[in-house]
């Protein structure tokens, strides 16, 4: 399959309230977060996870690993020209570690690409089986679901912080 179509379908719209600052918001709600190292978290068990039935878009469970804090960001000051808040983002991981990072404008924005969901799988497959010339595989299709222009990046190692009282 030498040619794979790459569709531009920014049709993915998130209905969920997005807690991130508006600059990081995209129609689909997708954002990019980069950090040095890996986040280790305990193997999922029923105690730490929830399948939120209230949101139909998320049908899988997750583990909460921490919190993102934008200490200089003030939602009441809605001046889009003010970018000072971008310089500082904290990412508290677990109870004792904090990553120090910032929001960066990407020099070259990223397109987020995924394999296209094919609703008429059976029908399409049938068509191609008839049309396809000797051994032509079922066509794969990709789509750009979002273009992301900013990322939250934590490029330093975590620093220890005091535990919470709770």
């Amino acid at each position: 399959m030498p040619t794979i179509p790459l569709h531009i379908s920014k049709t993915l719209h998130s209905t969920t309230e997005n807690p991130l600052p508006p600059l990081l918001l995209t129609p689909s709600g997708l954002a990019i977060l980069e950090l040095q190292g890996t986040i280790h978290f305990p193997t999922p068990s029923s105690a730490t996870t929830t399948s939120p039935s209230s949101d139909f878009t998320s049908n899988s469970s997750s583990t909460q690993v921490g919190k993102l804090v934008f200490p200089l960001y003030n939602p009441k000051l809605s001046d889009p020209a003010d970018t000072k808040w971008m310089k500082r983002v904290y990412f508290y991981v677990g109870k004792h570690q904090r990553l120090n990072g910032e929001v960066k404008k990407l020099g070259k924005p990223f397109a987020i690409i995924r394999k296209r969901e094919r609703r008429e799988d059976v029908e399409m497959g049938g068509m191609e089986a008839v049309e396809g010339e000797g051994g032509l595989e079922v066509q794969e299709e990709l789509e750009i679901v979002e273009v992301v222009r900013y990322k939250i990046v934590f490029s330093t190692r975590p620093e220890p912080v005091g535990g919470e009282e709770a």
Binding site: S14, T16, E17, N18, P19, L20, S28, G29, L30, A31, I32, L33, E34, L35, Q36, G37, T38, I39, T48, T49, T50, P52, S54, D55, T57, S58, S62, Q64, I112, S155
Partner: peptide
């Protein structure tokens, strides 16, 4: 680095 693509969700833990 670890690069994550994130999405907003309504979650209760």
């Amino acid at each position: 680095n670890s690069v994550f693509v994130t999405q907003p969700r309504l979650e209760g833990h």
